[in-house]
Amino acid sequence: MVVPNIDHSYYDMLGGEAGVRTLVDDFYDHMQLDERFAGIRAMHPQDMSTSRDKLFWFLSGWLGGPPLFEEKFGHPRLRARHLPFSIGESERDQWMTCMSDVMQKSTLSVEARSALIGALFKTADWMRNKDV
């Protein structure tokens, strides 16, 4: 994960635990309400509370905060954990658009937001396991 500077992690810049939780909840709320994200919404269970928690736990550590996901489950092994799902460019782009949309409400500077979106894109692109 790219850290914007040595004084503050993205975790801190987003407002710590409460800020990351808000980002995750806004992401899943947006996914659920916006038809543009129907493809990735269909990959989730009806009750997305576990999905919300897992993304929060993962992002907590990935953004420079407490490594909650690793404490609970060990190494994230993101690609391996996502292999059961068919993920191509469309799914990557839906995920990124949804996350980018909700990040516009964050307290991050334009520069930090742009850098974080770039880092998230690299990770989302790495999740692809089909060509289209």
Rank of each mutant, 00 (worst) to 15 (best):
D34C: 05
S9F: 03
E35I: 10
S86N: 04
P4I: 00
V102G: 04
P45K: 02
W62Y: 14
D101P: 00
G16P: 02
R52I: 07
S114Q: 09
R81G: 01
C98F: 05
A119G: 07
T22A: 15
E35N: 14
M96Y: 00
L120H: 00
P76G: 10
E111P: 03
V3R: 10
S60C: 14
L63Q: 08
L120F: 14
E89N: 11
F37Q: 06
D29M: 14
Y10K: 03
F85V: 00
L120Y: 07
G61R: 08
E91V: 05
F58S: 07
R52D: 07
R79P: 01
A112S: 15
F121K: 15
R113G: 10
K122Q: 14
L108H: 09
D25N: 13
F85L: 02
L23I: 08
T107H: 11
W126R: 06
R41Q: 07
P45M: 06
M31N: 03
V132I: 10
V3K: 13
H8A: 11
W57N: 08
R92W: 00
L63C: 10
P67L: 11
D29V: 08
P84T: 02
A80D: 13
L14I: 13
V20L: 04
S86L: 03
D29L: 14
L83S: 01
H8W: 13
M103A: 07
F58E: 07
Q104C: 04
V132D: 15
I87E: 00
R128K: 13
L120V: 11
M48E: 11
A112Y: 13
R77M: 07
R79T: 04
R113E: 12
W62L: 06
A124K: 06
S51Q: 12
D26C: 04
S60E: 10
F121Q: 15
H44E: 01
D12W: 12
K122G: 13
F56W: 13
G65W: 11
P45G: 05
L59N: 07
G65I: 07
G65E: 08
L59E: 09
N5K: 05
D25Y: 10
S86T: 02
R113C: 14
L59W: 11
S90D: 13
V2H: 12
H75K: 11
A119H: 12
E91L: 05
H30V: 11
H82K: 03
R36P: 09
F37D: 13
A38K: 05
P67K: 15
D53L: 13
L68A: 12
E111T: 13
R113L: 05
E71I: 04
A115P: 11
L108T: 10
S106L: 09
D7F: 11
L55I: 09
F73K: 11
F58G: 01
I40G: 06
D34M: 05
G118L: 05
L63I: 09
